[in-house]
Amino acid sequence: MQWVPEYRDDINRVERFNAVARITHWGHTVTFILCLFTGLVLFCDGMDWLATIFGGYAGAGLVHRIAAVLLTLFIAFFVLFDFKGIISWVKDLLRFGMNDIIFVMKFPLDFLGLPVKMPPQTRFNGGEKGNSMLTPTCVIFLVLSGYIMWFPAIFPAGLVRVAYPTHDIAMVFATFMVCMHGYLGSFHPGSGESFWGMWKGTVREDWAKHHHPIWYEEAYGEKADAEKE
């Protein structure tokens, strides 16, 4: 039984994510998980043992704040160094079409491992589009409500009161998506190759052709080659 598909450099590979996107992604992975575990200390009851790992509740609070600031800085880093990448990402999300709807509807079968024929996908498939929309939205809400809760004195009291449930709701949805994303981006046999896309930056050409034919055609197909020349 294999966990993540083997990395094969004997097969032709194409670039999927550039360095800035990958640094942002993994930076957010670490800081989000730190924030999550230090935050669950308060969200769930009876989490003293988890708080102890961070040196008690005060320590957990400190780690939470440091990780939150780093998480914010990674957003700034992404915006500063690859704004074009964000624009093309958003553009791809706006191409949400029939193929994506069919993908999402058929996806539960694929999720369980049943063989399904999916319509051709753009750079991000229907599920990835959903994740790309929901998770960053939740993170933006988490960041905003987090700073409001951190410095309540400089915000109107009504806003502070809204920030508490907002932080919790955004946390739950973001964590839900992160759990699914973490699994689908690694151990799920079909989509596991995309792990290498985010880790090493490249994916197998045949995988790209099979899973994201529209993207492959536009980025690396004959037409794209012709345009480059």
């Binding site: 369980l112 964590t175 759990c179 799920h188 046999p189 190759e193 099979h210």
Partner: peptide, 30 residues
């Protein structure tokens, strides 16, 4: 959150059982 973890664990098991049944996936995935 536990629901997402449970779903992922279920998928992890069923994908591998079904892969054995239907024969291994092609190298590039399904």
């Amino acid at each position: 959150i536990p629901l997402a973890l449970l779903g992922s664990a279920t998928s992890f098991v069923t994908t591998r059982i079904l892969a054995n049944k239907h024969g291994e996936h092609g190298e590039g995935g399904h």
